[in-house]
Simulated scan of single mutants.
Amino acid sequence: MDATKLRRAVARTRLAPIAGFPKRLARVARHDATVLATSARWLLTSREHHNYTYDLTRLSRQHLAWFVSVSCDAPVRQVRDWFAELEGDDRLRGHIEAATAAASRRGLADRHVRYARRVGWYAIVRARRPAHVVETGVDKGLGSCVLAAALLRNAAEGHPGRLTSLDINPEAGYLARATPWADVVDLVIGDSVASITALDRPVDLFLHDSDHSRVHEKREFEEVEAKLAPNAMLLTDNVTATNVLAEHAERTGRRFLAYRETPARHWYPGDGIGVAW
């Protein structure tokens, strides 16, 4: 009996799991070794302790471009150009690096600028040209800078807009406090649900990125519903953890899509973008 026939014969017996164990163990070991090596490299080279930043794999970037293309009805080539526009913005990159180096929290932040899924946020703002964007959850303000940069590009093309950034931490948003980005950002400190209730103009694009508990996320989407402009778009940064936005989309008669990013050279499995429109 040749080797192939022997393997097939064993596969039909109770010995199959035992015979296959060495190969299965080798595959798991290779995977775990890669994860451990990546984790060790990150522990030695990164300063971050939350809100991790990283690049995306090439495949993940391609999928993100199509995600934006479909949800915003924009040519995928144009979406890729918007990705490149953000990543080629040396003025923004230089500002983020300099502000990070000078910040009181610089010991807990990496200086190298990595946007990950935020290039998708940027492209969505470029495609939708919203007059008013609201984001909840600001932290250092990296996402705020990305959104503001897109709004500034839109304004230069005749489509001005503003960003309202909501956070409960008075120290949040230090990256977005410099011109020209600060010129289009209104930073509001306080509870996000109460701040949404107090909004005095329609919201064209809403992004949940604050307290990621299911209850709080649901409250934000419920509260913002009455503030939305016609054809507004809803985004969540919590789509890999909850189905809140998908359920909200179904209740309100919207379409929904989800994208999950894949970080390059990072131990963290990544987050994603959920969109309802």
Rank of each mutant, 00 (worst) to 15 (best):
R126K: 07
W82T: 08
V125I: 15
V146A: 01
T45R: 13
S165P: 01
V185P: 01
A109M: 14
T262W: 02
I189F: 04
C145A: 00
T179H: 06
R80S: 04
Y268A: 08
L6I: 12
E220S: 01
L43I: 11
P22S: 09
E135K: 07
A172I: 01
D73L: 15
L15V: 12
Y122L: 06
A102S: 11
R61A: 14
D110S: 01
L147E: 03
F206Q: 05
N51L: 13
G270K: 13
G20W: 09
T164M: 00
F67M: 05
N238V: 15
F67W: 09
A65S: 12
R265Q: 07
V224K: 06
P17W: 03
Y268I: 10
Y54I: 04
I18T: 12
A226H: 11
V79M: 09
V113P: 00
R129C: 06
I124V: 10
A103C: 05
L92T: 01
R41N: 12
F21C: 02
R162L: 05
L163D: 04
H132V: 02
L163A: 02
R260Y: 11
A249M: 07
T164L: 03
R111V: 10
M1E: 06
G120K: 06
R126W: 03
G120S: 05
V79Q: 11
L6K: 12
K140I: 07
V76A: 05
A101S: 13
I96A: 00
A33G: 03
T179Q: 09
P269R: 03
A11Y: 10
H50T: 12
A194Y: 01
Y52G: 01
T13A: 09
R128H: 12
L86C: 04
P22V: 10
R114Q: 09
L15P: 03
H95N: 03
A84F: 01
E217V: 14
V203G: 11
V188K: 13
R114C: 02
P230Y: 03
R7S: 03
